[in-house]
């Protein structure tokens, strides 16, 4: 093995940093929405809120290469006049979606439809709502197959919205980002590293891998080095173990 190389080496830390950087645009977008929505009111009319959220999220869902596949705001109970539950959520254009068909424009998700009622009833216990509420931090849920909307393998990013520190949460701003998009940004760098790598989430589920025996969606087992991705519940495993189960 050559000890010294003239080529610039891609380190594991570079890969971890690239993953963090690839989420920066998304977090900046959510942060902007959060500031817009934390307008000082402790309660809001549904039509006003919907119009406000729609104006914010549509640009991020449409266009040539949209950042998100879905985005919106989920209100805390009581924030929207007379409503225990209020979802203001839009989806980007869909092609051949088995649930929603195809559409060339962004569409609002109708959470009043029966298929969603069970899901919506328990939303306060769901990871993407509960974690930002209890930690007051941005959270990344997933990857998981979104069976309710896009039927794609996605992450859900959520950020708590509060008027000020210590005040009750008004809700969460959120966005869905596809695993495919993250891969297109960081896989080339992962492939340039001199050892096999796998990006995993907090339960060691594989998101991106440069070892074909360790595939996306599997749970990795690992005994070697790893580098955390700053600000994300992810880390990069170096030389992930071949998996005993597939």
């Amino acid at each position: 093995m050559p000890e010294i190389s003239q080529l610039p080496e891609v380190t594991i830390s570079d890969c971890a940093a690239a993953v963090t950087a690839s989420f920066a645009d998304a977090f900046a977008e959510l942060d902007g929405w959060r500031n817009e929505l934390a307008g000082g009111e402790t309660s809001v009319r549904p039509t006003d809120l919907d119009a406000h959220v729609e104006g914010l999220v549509i640009p991020a869902l449409t266009g040539a290469s949209p950042l998100f596949v879905g985005a919106g705001f989920i209100a805390a109970p009581g924030y929207v006049h007379g409503r225990d539950i209020h979802f203001a959520w839009w989806l980007g254009p869909q092609a051949g979606n088995p649930l929603l068909g195809s559409s060339s424009a962004a569409t609002r998700l109708d959470f009043a439809a029966r298929a969603y009622t069970d899901y919506v009833r328990d939303f306060r216990t769901l990871e993407w709502y509960q974690v930002p509420q209890s930690t007051n931090q941005t959270h990344v849920t997933g990857p998981y197959v979104d069976r309710l909307c896009t039927c794609e393998y996605i992450f859900t990013l959520t950020m708590p919205v509060r008027i000020g520190e210590g005040t009750p949460m008004l809700g969460v701003v959120g966005a869905d980002i596809s695993v495919r998009r993250l891969e297109s940004i960081v896989l080339p760098l992962f492939l340039a590293a001199d050892r096999p790598l796998a990006l995993v989430n907090a339960v060691d589920r594989v998101v991106i891998s440069t070892d074909p025996t360790v595939q996306v969606g599997q749970l990795a087992s690992h005994s070697g080095d790893s580098v955390a991705c700053s600000g994300l519940p992810f880390r990069v495993l170096v030389g992930p173990d071949r998996l005993p189960r597939f």
Binding site: R147, C151, G217
Partner: peptide
């Protein structure tokens, strides 16, 4: 179960 398989294709196929 389909969701736990982590396969978007299996989810779509099952729905159909």
């Amino acid at each position: 179960l389909a969701v736990l398989s982590q396969s978007a294709r299996l989810v779509r196929e099952l729905i159909r």
